[in-house]
């Protein structure tokens, strides 16, 4: 039997809205292998963000199972889920969600301290991440002094500081200009290459196409999925594709 890092079985979420029921998720079966990068793609309102929130322990399913690293997330109390969120899950949001009056270094360090690491350990991880993401010189700045791309770097460092089982990213390039978006994609790929398991929800084909597997959602259901192959030889790719004529 294959071991999954993250697995949902018949995951369903129903909201009640003025007496009528809204099925945000319907019997979703999704499994993510260790080290895999998966993209969940679909239009707004298809349930992909609800899925991400439940996988990250931010929301409760109505029925169905969520297994993360061998634990039943759906059976946990709120307190247990809070611990799981801190230690196993890293979040990256469209709006960065950085704390404005804390320095970059403190923003990254804080979740590690909350999760129970010593100051020394937290600092060590912070410095390693700052170095890795090329923002060591920004450690003392506050987020407002950074560019959009730098802020998303900080958000990524913060998401990774507790060495999470899985990194969950919600439209990580939404609202960014194309140059900054490119930078963020580069970081996500780099992070994945280092072995990090990543689940991205997005409606942007560019972001989704970075993954190894794309899962399509419509109306709360998974309707289809496609596996993307790595091409060994990219040398002739452009010549084949573009069919440019030199005039």
């Amino acid at each position: 039997m294959e071991t999954y890092l993250l697995e949902t079985k018949q995951l369903t979420k129903v909201y009640r809205n003025n007496g009528s029921k809204v099925h945000a998720l319907q019997e979703v079966d999704l499994a993510v292998k260790p080290g895999e990068m998966v993209a969940v793609m679909g239009p707004s309102g298809c349930g992909k963000s609800t899925l991400l929130h439940i996988l990250g322990g931010l929301d409760n399913p109505t029925s169905g199972e969520v297994h993360i690293n061998g634990q039943r997330l759906d059976k946990m109390s709120e307190a247990q889920r809070a611990v799981l969120r801190r230690k196993q899950v890293g979040f990256m949001f469209q709006a960065f969600n950085l704390i404005g009056n804390l320095s970059v270094g403190d923003n990254i360090e804080l979740p590690a301290l909350v999760a129970g690491l010593s100051v020394r350990q937290a600092r060590k991880r912070r410095d390693a991440l700052l170095e890795d993401l090329g923002i060591s010189d920004k450690s003392r700045n506050i987020p407002a002094q950074l560019s959009g791309g730098e802020r998303q770097r900080v958000a990524l460092a913060r998401a990774l500081v507790n060495q999470p089982t899985i990194l969950l990213a919600d439209e990580p390039t939404g609202n960014l200009d194309s140059k900054t978006a490119y930078e963020v994609l580069r970081l996500l790929r780099q992070t994945h290459m280092q072995g990090q398991t990543i689940l991205i929800v997005t409606n942007d084909p560019n972001v989704a196409s970075l993954a190894q597997r794309v899962v399509f959602m419509r109306d709360g259901r998974i309707i289809n999925e496609t596996i993307l192959q790595e091409r060994d030889d990219t040398k002739t790719l452009l010549v084949e594709l573009l069919n440019l004529e030199g005039g």
Binding site: S178, Y182, L185, R186, R189, P205, N206, A208, S209, L210, V214, T226, L228, Q229, E230, R231, T234, L237, L238, L241, L242
Partner: peptide
């Protein structure tokens, strides 16, 4: 999507930072 994946991967290769004229072509595609 597969083609987009191939181009995306290519566009993120380290050499692209020194080759903006090639990068911009890929980004157009």
């Amino acid at each position: 999507l597969q083609t987009l994946h191939n181009l995306n991967t290519l566009s993120l290769e380290p050499e692209m930072t020194e080759n903006p004229s090639k990068l911009v072509l890929i980004q157009g595609a």
